[in-house]
Amino acid sequence: MKDKKTKEKKIKLNIIPAPHIGGSMSTGKMMRLTLLALLFPCFGAVYFFGVRVIYLFLCCISASLISEYAALKMRKAPLSTESFSSAAVTGVILALILPPGFPLWAAFIGAVFAILIVKHVFGGLGKNIFNPALMGRAFLAAAFPLIITQYAMTPRSLPYGLSPGLHSDAVSEATPLNRIKFEEKTPGSSFYIPYLLGERKGSAGETSGILILIGLAVLLLSGAADWRLPLSYFTSIAVFSGILWLFAPDKFINPIFTLLLGGVFLGGTYMVTDPVTTPASPKGKLVFGIGSGFLTVLIRTFSGYPEGVMFAILLMNAAVPLIERYTSPRIYGT
């Protein structure tokens, strides 16, 4: 009896519901990997648009973190690391999709809106319907329509003679997509490489396709993002713009420029892969990617806007419950 007592003192048995083991991926790890993958376009942004961009990043991240803290306190929700790292991801993405010279006070308002209204009014981490960063950008575009178009910056030239000599048209404030849309000036094929590397006007983080693709590789290889979403998105854009281009090559942008220009790579890598605002089922993910791609091409080609990535993804975000309803997998034996 004495023996038993001492034994019980030393050993405490815990009741753990099965399963007693777990996989290696955790939500915190997914967030950290996303932040790691986001570093690549951040480097690109600082390289092409200078130190000014760092202030934009700091402003958006701190606004996100502060609003996250305030929102969690107000809702009396636990202050979890997952919530804060997801808020940091929102801050970084918002900074990446704003013009590099964007006023800091406006960026601050955008980040606060993204976290407080888009994320926490709907219930916080995991419950938001719309991608907070994209909705923040949409809010800024609606609230300050002039400012959002005015702060494009001229990128630094690429070294080693890779630069196509953009500076002749640097006087123009327009991004390549604007020029195609409004001035009908389609760039030649000599622009493929500089555009892929990132020498063009645009929002802070969207210009360097190659760095974003490195980030995408990090996300996919580490298992932090599902391959179905970016793959179906890029494929759908290439296919739909390809169909238009084959139909009338002189009227529509070719698929390569459609992929390279604007925010296709950035959106496909960091926004289409956001698990919270996209379907959970494998088929639903494909439908989401294809739909976003189709809408991107549709908006770019047939609307008054030169760019369509943001609205395409936000519209598909709203359609997620509908998609999930019709794409749930077949139950075994039925």
Partner: peptide
Amino acid sequence: FFRKQAPCVKCGRCVDTCPMGLCPQR
């Protein structure tokens, strides 16, 4: 192995893995 029980982020891993074709997330 104490589970953290963080909020669901709808990643869909559970849907991918369910041998019975259910949507555990749903």
